[in-house]
Each structure stands twice: as structure tokens, then as C-alpha cells.
Design a protein around this nucleic acid. Structure first.
Length: 432
RNA sequence: GGAGAGAUGGCAGAGCGGUUGAAUGCGGCGGUCUCGAAAACCGUUAUACCUUUACGGGUAUCGGGGGUUCGAAUCCCCCUCUCUCCGCCA
């Protein structure tokens, strides 16, 4: 959410920002309603002042034993008019907030302007493409031949776009979660947090998944508006919804492992093979609450914290700045970290790190008391650190061997009982 | 799932329908005293919005929403959350 002062006083600037994003919203109606609102308030408040003064006079008069019936009669009509104005104001207010909830954030000046991912800008590249003496396979081929990935039975249990991890696959997923949490808490200064995996509609409004993107979510049946979380960003950012933080508490850095649930409506036929675009996936998320003046530095740090995991795992990757047309609704600037997948000969997103400035904080009403005692909105940031399933994909594809096994990077071995590679598994029913 | 109790400012805790944004205590901030500190004493202590070049003025807010009334923290209705007890349960 943007401040009404900004929308009112800098509407030309915002129009340009909308153009850069390729977004179309009804700013003119907002400005018209905003003017109407203030007009109503001005009149209503004058009448309320009159009523307050008169009420006190009535009280004094009654105490003195006088008759106040003429004043009371007069105030009845004032009261009616106030009620009328209040009703109109509530109506306008409702229209205004419905409008401003669908206004996207303003992209930062440093964001490349363009309509889609083609205009994204590569900032830096780490490592090199691994070379193979054989044709590298896709992760779903590797996973299924090793017996650690099972899509067919997942489809039977639930449906399309679900997966079963088995044996060393499941173990590696768990190892990655622990490894990531361990690095972020002990080396990068994050506090581990395990939030609910189900949230209410207010939380989704706070981080801006609602009202615009409801079709991406899984909603639970029942009388309550409960949703499965699409990312830990939602419960963790909303941890401080409606709160006032002390300046000395900032920055607050949380890391959370959660499963994530996305309906991925409309994306059928796009990257549907393998583990890349699932309805359920594991993610370790990084979330920061920062003082406004420190948030840009915090974005660089957060992005590097996420990339550090890939460096430790020895995975070739690059960092790109998303263009104005490719970035998310609430973000002012987003870095994607893309990991190299040799089986598909492409870079694939494994983390998305954003600075939202005060956009989410306004929606969720997360403030802090600055050193000068003044209340201000915090800045919020988040990024994957990392998408666990996709990390597993990257490990399978990058560390595959000619004999069909997969080498386990050394940093991960302590989390996998010291195993050095994933070997083909026997069927679990006949194992042991 | 059943029964009951509760929700007031940073915290604790008052509050006959009428100068109650809200007593009192603690905490916080500023000051007096002191070489300094403590104590004591004095003062101060919210947020949002409207209006104003500014100084200022005004409105709203006692979990949330609605109602009664000239006037609601106080009365009525609905909702949410917390606590206690019973039942069920990983």
C-alpha cells in the first residue's frame, strides 16, 4: 500500500511508475474519491464539534435544574445529519481501500525497465558450468532411476504436480532444510521461527497476496477464511502485524522452514515436468524488518546470505535484477538467484529476494518508534534461502555421475550420516 | 464439543450515561538538587485523520462491528481472542 499523501500529491510520478510496470489501475477515481472523503470529513467534524459543545451545555443546564428540551431537539437534527455523513464516508472509505489495495508498489530507480523477463539484468555470476563426459540427464530421470523420486504414486495419492521423496531423496531434503537453517542462524544472524502453515485472510492482505492473487492460493473449506500458506513470508511478516517495534530491536531477521502450497492456476504446460513447479514444496525463507534508511543495504545482505548457501554447495549460479514488468506486485526491487541446471541446460530461479520498502508495513501496520520517538513504518524484506526442492534438483543434476549415482557435496554429508553419494535404492518393500 | 470468566494507555489497575484521552501506581523523558549518582521534589508522557504557510484548531479511538441516546469506556446485540473447568485427542 502506498501513502495517500503520495498518491494525491505525486500522482504524476505514480502514473509514470505504473507505466514502467505496465500496470493499469484507476488512479483518477482514487483521486476523486479522496477529495470527496475529505470534504465529507470536514463537514462531519464541524457538526460533531457543535454537538460536543452543545452536549456539555445540556449537561450543565440539567445540573442547574434548567430545561434543555429546545437544545436537545436541535441536536437531534444535527445527529441525523452526522449519521448521514458518516454513512457516506464509510461508503467512500470502502471504495478507497478497495482501490488502494490493488495499486502496485513503485519500482526503484535502479530497476531495469521492460515488459518481461527478457529485460532482466544479470548482475553477477558465480562459478562455472560443470562439464560432463556424458550427456547429463534431467533430475526426474536421475531421481526415478535412483528410486528416490516417485511422481506416479504421488499422482495416485493426491494428483498432478505432487511428488514423493523416498529414502536418500527424502533424507537429502531434510538434510538441506537443516543445513540451510543452521548456516543462516549460526553464520548470518537469523532467528529461527516455525510459524503456522495456515493463515487467515488478514495476514494475506498484509503481505499483499490478497485481494489480487486469490486464485494462486489453496483455501480451506469451512466457515473460516483459512488458507494454506504459499510462502513463509506470510506468517512470518505478519508476526508483527499491528505491532510497534522499538528502534533498538531493528533489524529483526527471521529464518523459517515451511512447506509452501500454491495452486499454480493457469501455469499448466509450463515447466510441469519434475520437481520445478509443484503444488507443495519445501522452502527456507529469510524475512527482515529493517529501519527505512538501512533496507537497501539489508537487501544486498539478504541476497548474499541466500547465495552463500549455493556457494557452500558449489553450485554455479547467477544473480539477476528483475525488470519492472517481471517483478512482483508489492516489491520495489527484486533479485532472483538462478541456479544452473545441466540436465535442462538453463538457469532456473531458486530464490527471489525483495525489498518492499514500507509497502507491506503500511498494509500490515508494522511500525517502530524511531530514536526521535516518532512513529514510522518499518521496511520489510524477504527472500528464499533457498527453495529446498529446487536445491535438491540442482544437486541431482549438477553432481550426477556417469555410473548413475549422485555425489553428495561435503558440507551436506554431516547431515546425511556421512554418506558420500546416493546409490540406486532397492524397493523399500524388499530392502533390509 | 460443553460450561463459566474476562479484554481499559508501555505495564499494572480504577472508572454513578454528562468538561474522562480517561483516576492512581510503576515505567519512560525533561528539570531542580549533587563533583557525579541514588533518593526526593517539579514538570511531561498515545495514535490516526481533517484543517492551517505556520502557530494552532478540530474529530475519532477504552478487543472488533452494529444499536439505543441530545450525549456511551459505561446500557443492548453480534463477532473475535484470552483464561478456568469438563469431554475428546497427536
Amino acid at each position: 500500500m502506498l501513502s495517500r499523501d503520495y498518491l494525491r500529491e505525486q500522482s504524476d510520478r505514480y502514473r509514470q511508475a505504473l507505466k514502467r510496470r505496465g500496470a493499469d489501475v484507476d488512479l483518477e477515481q482514487f483521486i476523486q474519491l479522496d477529495g470527496e472523503r475529505r470534504q465529507i470529513i470536514t463537514e462531519a467534524e464541524q457538526l460533531k464539534n457543535r454537538r460536543n459543545v452543545a452536549s456539555q451545555a445540556i449537561a450543565r443546564l440539567k445540573k442547574a435544574g434548567g430545561d434543555a428540551s429546545t437544545q436537545i431537539e436541535e441536536m437531534k437534527s444535527v445527529g441525523d445529519r452526522i449519521r448521514e455523513l458518516d454513512t457516506r464516508q464509510a461508503d467512500v472509505e470502502g471504495q478507497l481501500s478497495a482501490l488502494e489495495l490493488v495499486f502496485p508498489n513503485v519500482p526503484d530507480e535502479s530497476v531495469p525497465v521492460g515488459p518481461d523477463a527478457e529485460s532482466n539484468r544479470v548482475e553477477r555470476v558465480w562459478g562455472e558450468r560443470p562439464s560432463f563426459s556424458f550427456a547429463p540427464r534431467n533430475h526426474w530421470e536421475i531421481g526415478e532411476s535412483l528410486g528416490v523420486l516417485d511422481f506416479d504414486r504421488a499422482a495416485k495419492i493426491t494428483g498432478a504436480r505432487f511428488s514423493v521423496l523416498l529414502g536418500a531423496g527424502a533424507q537429502m531434503e531434510r538434510a538441506l532444510i537443516n543445513f540451510m537453517l543452521e548456516v543462516h542462524t549460526t553464520q548470518h544472524g537469523y532467528t529461527e521461527i516455525l510459524p503456522p502453515f495456515i493463515v487467515n485472510a488478514d495476514s494475506l492482505l498484509g503481505t499483499a497476496q490478497l485481494p489480487k492473487f486469490e486464485e494462486d492460493l489453496f483455501k480451506l473449506a469451512g466457515e473460516k477464511d483459512y488458507y494454506l500458506i504459499p510462502t513463509a513470508e506470510v506468517p512470518v511478516t505478519n508476526y508483527y502485524r499491528q505491532d510497534v517495534l522499538a528502534a533498538e530491536e531493528l533489524p529483526v531477521s527471521f529464518c523459517a522452514y515451511t512447506p509452501c502450497f500454491r495452486s499454480e492456476a493457469g501455469s499448466y504446460g509450463k515447466d510441469t515436468r519434475g520437481l520445478i513447479r509443484q503444488h507443495q514444496f519445501d522452502k527456507v525463507e529469510l524475512v527482515k524488518f529493517s529501519r527505512p534508511e538501512e533496507s537497501w543495504k539489508a537487501l544486498e545482505k539478504l541476497t548474499d546470505d541466500a547465495a552463500h548457501i549455493l556457494r557452500l554447495l558449489g553450485l554455479h549460479h547467477r544473480i539477476v535484477t528483475l525488470s519492472t514488468g517481471d517483478m512482483g506486485f508489492a516489491s520495489a526491487k527484486t533479485y532472483d538467484i538462478e541456479v544452473w541446471l545441466p540436465g535442462q541446460e538453463t538457469f532456473r530461479e531458486i530464490s527471489s529476494c525483495s525489498n518492499f520498502l514500507d509497502f507491506q508495513a503500511r498494509r500490515a501496520n508494522i511500525r517502530y518508534r524511531s530514536d526521535t520517538k516518532k512513529m514510522s513504518f518499518v521496511h520489510t524484506l524477504n527472500g528464499s534461502g533457498l527453495a529446498v526442492g529446487r536445491t535438491l534438483v540442482a544437486l541431482l543434476e549438477n553432481y550426477q555421475q556417469e555410473d548413475g549415482t549422485v555425489r553428495i557435496p561435503e558440507v551436506l554429508r554431516p547431515y546425511m550420516r556421512g554418506a558420500e553419494r546416493i546409490e540406486p535404492a532397492r524397493r523399500p518393500s524388499t530392502a533390509g
